[in-house]
């Protein structure tokens, strides 16, 4: 198999005295879909935020698309261009229109001509099925629409990897489906995805690999069929019992 596109090797991180990530080792191949789950506070967000250096790890190695994350601005910039991120709270720029949200990075970071950036942005808005909202401001859209714009924005630099941190947790139930549909579409096109979510139906349908975290450790890594039906670890079993129970 080819070299992994994301590689975490013995990663440790502390918040002050609090050991939040403990010996995290994870390899993600090109095109692989990884779904991360685990109890609240287990370090899921912290782990994926380390992958684009929103958090700094203190020991171990993180390599993304051949670039090792270290205290080197060039490396960090290179990685951030190759990795798109979608947040739980959308984080769209409220003072810019939907279209401007999508063209900001291509124009300012990649130096694309504004006209080309707009064409790319419109194509992405078609893909998330809201081209008619291009001229509106984020505050004028529903939560589901905002999250789809956020996905389009994360795609505008043509990333090799997409990170999702609970992208549907802040949504009203009737809007969860439209966002998961867009994500499934993305998965079907072969995007490499690392996704923190508790949408187990989505995980079962889309994931190649399930990762279960607890207390800062990766407790179990398994394909979804085995993960859901025959979890090896006692903690995984308890967690799944709780989550699927209701």
């Amino acid at each position: 198999m080819a070299a992994p596109i994301v590689e975490l090797c013995d990663v440790n991180k502390w918040f002050g005295a609090f050991h939040v990530l403990k010996d995290i080792t994870l390899e993600v191949a090109k095109g692989e879909k990884v779904v991360v789950c685990g109890p609240s506070g287990s370090g899921k967000s912290t782990m994926i935020r380390c992958i684009n250096r929103l958090e700094e790890h203190q020991s171990g190695r993180i390599v993304v698309d051949g670039v090792e994350l270290a205290d080197d601005i060039k490396a960090i910039d290179a990685v951030r261009r190759r990795v798109g991120m979608v947040f739980q709270s959308f984080n769209l720029f409220p003072h810019l229109t939907v279209l401007e949200n999508l063209t900001l990075a291509p124009v300012r970071v990649a130096g694309m001509a504004p006209r080309d950036a707009e064409a790319t942005a419109m194509a992405l808005l078609e893909r998330v099925r809201i081209p008619e909202q291009a001229g509106k401001f984020p505050g004028q859209l529903s939560g589901g629409q905002q999250q789809r714009v956020a996905i389009a924005r994360a795609l505008c630099l043509k990333p090799a990897v997409m990170l999702f941190d609970e992208p549907t947790s802040a949504l009203d139930p009737e809007m969860v489906g439209e966002v998961l549909d867009v994500m499934s579409g993305l998965a079907a096109e072969g995007m490499t995805m690392i996704c923190v979510t508790h949408e187990m139906g989505f995980a079962r349908a889309v994931a190649d690999t399930m990762v279960f975290m607890d207390e800062g450790r990766i407790v179990e890594i398994a394909p979804p069929a085995r993960f859901f039906d025959h979890p090896a670890n006692e903690r995984t079993k308890r967690f799944l019992g709780k989550i699927i129970g209701h």
């Binding site: 684009n52 900001l104 300012r108």
Partner: peptide
């Protein structure tokens, strides 16, 4: 300004100066 705004801008590769000016 919420911290998420800066994080979203960072994840798009904007520099600290650009984030201050544009976001």
């Amino acid at each position: 300004v919420p911290k998420g705004q800066t994080e979203a801008a960072l994840s798009l590769g904007l520099s600290p100066g650009q984030i201050l000016r544009l976001v």
